[in-house]
């Protein structure tokens, strides 16, 4: 509703004075505006009293908005077909991490097909800024953030550190070709 019907501009010296002419109901009587306001509030009150169609509030623990597809939650480490960790300890993710929250201690394996594996893989969820750069950086599809889980509140800071075990517990199988297509990709293209 347009309450300002007209405005006049007069110049006094350097200043411009704007005189706003309002509806007579606004300056002479409060009754009309009062009734108008009451109809608005009554309409909302009664519609919300009997139905919840206008209510915006979500009763959080019981009702939740589903997260979007690309939501970044807690990390997880993916597994190979035989259940071993996909991570090859290439150190791409701690390098990319702007918060320096990823700690990897690489170790060698006896398996000739796997050059390195992470003996220790820890993520400090308190330092993590949930930017997702580690996922972008990973060449092996070893780390993902698609769990849609929140970091749980902890009593001690140490409890917020996700270990390799807990990260693998959330992990699943990944069938991506390990380390891209391998060194013989030119031959396989032909």
């Amino acid at each position: 509703m347009d309450t300002v019907t007209q405005s006049e501009k007069t110049t006094v010296g350097r200043a411009t004075v704007v005189t706003v002419k309002r509806e007579p109901s606004q300056t002479t009587s409060f009754m009309m505006t009062l009734i108008r306001g009451m109809t608005v509030t009554m309409r909302h009150f009664f519609s919300n009293l009997f139905t919840k169609t206008q209510t915006e509030t979500l009763e959080y623990p019981e009702e939740k908005i589903p997260y979007p597809e690309r939501h970044r939650g807690l990390h997880r480490l993916m597994k190979r077909d035989d259940g071993r960790v996909r991570c090859v300890a290439c150190m791409c993710c701690p390098t990319a991490c702007p918060a320096n929250c990823i700690t990897i201690v690489p170790a060698e394996t006896d398996d000739p097909s796997v050059e390195k594996y992470p003996a220790v893989f820890e993520i400090d969820e308190l330092r993590c800024i949930v930017c997702g750069l580690c996922v972008e950086a990973c060449p092996c599809d070893a780390i993902r953030m698609d769990t849609k889980l929140h970091a749980a509140p902890v009593e001690f800071r140490g409890d917020a550190i996700e270990t390799k075990t807990s990260l693998l517990e959330r992990g699943g199988l990944s069938h991506a070709i390990q380390a891209g297509k391998g060194s013989d990709w030119r031959e396989s293209e032909q």
């Binding site: 909302h44 009150f45 209510t55």
Partner: peptide, 10 residues
């Protein structure tokens, strides 16, 4: 409660 209902809250 009433103010909440007027303002579309719970």
């Amino acid at each position: 409660r009433q103010s909440a209902m007027i303002q579309d809250r719970l």
